[in-house]
Design a protein around this nucleic acid. Structure first.
Ligand code: ZN
Ligand code: ZN
Ligand code: ZN
Ligand code: ZN
Lengths: 161, 161
DNA sequence: ATATAAATGTAATGTTATAACATATCAATA
DNA sequence: TATTGATATGTTATAACATTACATTTATAT
């Protein structure tokens, strides 16, 4: 579970361009269209390792000459979420780029209440527990959202001084 | 993990009155005030095993002669959530009465997309995984929300016919 | 009784999200 | 290459959810 992109240092330009290329490739493979707005929306999310609200994204899109009305952003973000390129953070009514779009996963979203950064861990233990529940209760799980609020290591250190 | 109130049959009147009594007792113990609006708000949530939006609750409160403006509902619901008597369902921007307010727990919310009922399971496996993550990544978890969307057994059966 | 705090109430506004409809673009094929 | 059907982009209008700021009432503690 260690690969918690977002709270660790990394070459961010590289991180963004790699992610965009991978997204393009994935969309090609699936035969869905990674159009300019969609691409730009993902790029906007990738620029920050934070969750952005639909209206924040919209603002950026409109600066780039795309439409200015809410559905523009909601549709682009909806596409990204559908394709697993981004996740919706329910707790914040906001969106983050996925940190491992290549892997089929249930994301565990980590929200730092200090610096408002958002990171994503892949939850490994969860699946077994949920399948077990299905057997016991008859509830069939289609999708799961796991979101934790807390303090990242940086903010914990800062608080100690 | 079996005790999934909400998807199983039960004497509902009893279920409501018991819960209200327990809530009263708990508030007394803690020295917080279970005032009429708060009590009524909980009762409204208990009447359904569904998640209700703040404005739905507000409507019921106002019918009963309480204030008619959003803060009335948001404050009552906020109180209930603080005291662990209800949970906020982030996925629905809505609220459910807690199914086991006596136990200190991380709720796992189960949302049926067929009938829109909401149930609550106590997650037993989760804690260990999250504490492990804390050790590995330095992220300190303060609270966790787990929400699953899927199909309850009733709806699964109906779909088979 | 009076001071203090907590709870309830309203008005105004801010934020997030969708429905409904019009237009443009793309992809397949007649 | 013109037609057509599907997908995507765009707008308007409105719905749904939530908070800030301030006034009034009610409870609790001197
Ligand atoms: Zn990055
Ligand atoms: Zn932080
Ligand atoms: Zn609960
Ligand atoms: Zn159902």
């Amino acid at each position: 579970m260690p690969d918690v992109v977002g709270f660790t240092k990394h070459n961010h330009k590289h991180c963004v361009s790699t992610a965009l290329k991978a997204a393009q490739a994935q969309c090609d493979t699936r035969g869905v269209r990674f159009t300019p707005v969609r691409r730009r929306a993902l790029e906007v999310l990738l620029e920050h390792h934070r969750a952005l609200g639909a209206y924040d994204v919209l603002e950026r899109l409109q600066e780039d000459g795309y439409g200015s009305k809410p559905p523009i952003a909601y549709r682009a973000l909806g596409f990204l979420v559908e394709q697993g390129l981004a996740h919706r953070v329910e707790r914040l009514n906001a969106y983050v780029a996925c940190a491992h779009p290549d892997r089929d996963h249930t994301p565990a979203i980590l929200i730092c209440s200090g610096c408002h950064k958002v990171a994503e861990a892949i939850d490994t233990t969860q699946n077994s527990g949920l399948r077990q529940m299905q057997a016991e209760t008859g509830f069939t799980v289609a999708s799961v959202a796991i979101e934790a609020e807390g303090t990242c290591s940086d903010c914990t250190e800062k608080a100690r001084s």
